[in-house]
């Protein structure tokens, strides 16, 4: 631990950013959807950049419900994997280099509430882990566009943690 206290600030940031990138960059669907993650300490905000290909209703226009669901599910899965990785990383049991071998939780079920139509602009989401046991986890996700207080979608999902999915 004493070594960590001496670690320069920039180095800590880089180490954490690299760990997050190692998790996210491995999943083809995340980059295909134009999703990226912003980090403040251990808190993640997912961002889905608007793209024409995400449209589900060309007349309105509005985002496809499946694009929104994909965004929310991705946010939940990465939040779970990240919170596990964070504990191991900050506890010193896992190195950043090993992050690329972290296995992702598997979705058991996922339920999306569509509160407003998704407009043709960027989306933001944050996930909250309500319960994370050794085997199962329950995660809630909120997504918004212009106003944080006016959610356009929310979701709840249950996940099987990697060790137990065989």
């Amino acid at each position: 631990m004493s070594k960590q206290h001496k670690e320069p600030l920039q180095q800590i940031k880089e180490r954490r950013d690299n760990a997050l990138a190692a998790l996210v960059d491995r999943v083809p669907y995340i980059s295909f959807m134009g999703i990226c993650f912003e980090r403040r300490g251990d808190e993640l905000t997912a961002v889905m950049r608007f793209d024409e290909k995400l449209i589900g209703n060309p007349i309105l226009p509005a985002l496809h419900g499946g694009a929104t669901a994909s965004f929310l599910e991705t946010t939940a899965v990465i939040e779970l994997a990240w919170s596990q990785a964070w504990r191991q990383m900050e506890g010193g049991t896992v190195h950043t280099a090993a992050m690329a071998t972290v296995r992702l939780p598997k979705t058991i079920d996922f339920t999306v509430d569509y509160l407003r139509s998704g407009l043709a602009r960027d989306c933001y989401a944050r996930a909250r882990i309500n319960r994370s046991g050794r085997r199962y986890a329950s995660v809630h996700v909120e997504a918004w566009q212009d106003n944080r207080s006016r959610l356009y979608a929310q979701a709840t999902g249950h996940f099987l943690m990697p060790k137990y999915d065989d």
């Binding site: 491995r26 999943v27 083809p28 669907y29 295909f32 959807m33 589900g56 496809h64 419900g65 499946g66 694009a67 669901a69 994909s70 965004f71 599910e73 991705t74 899965v77 296995r103 992702l104 598997k106 979705t107 996922f110 999306v112």
Partner: peptide
């Protein structure tokens, strides 16, 4: 489609792609 892989270890399609198909 390799672009919609959700689990890089197994090559399994992302749940979100299934969600999109079922929703459509």
């Amino acid at each position: 489609d390799p672009r919609v892989i959700g689990d890089p270890d197994t090559g399994v399609v992302h749940g979100g792609a299934f969600f999109a198909l079922l929703d459509t």
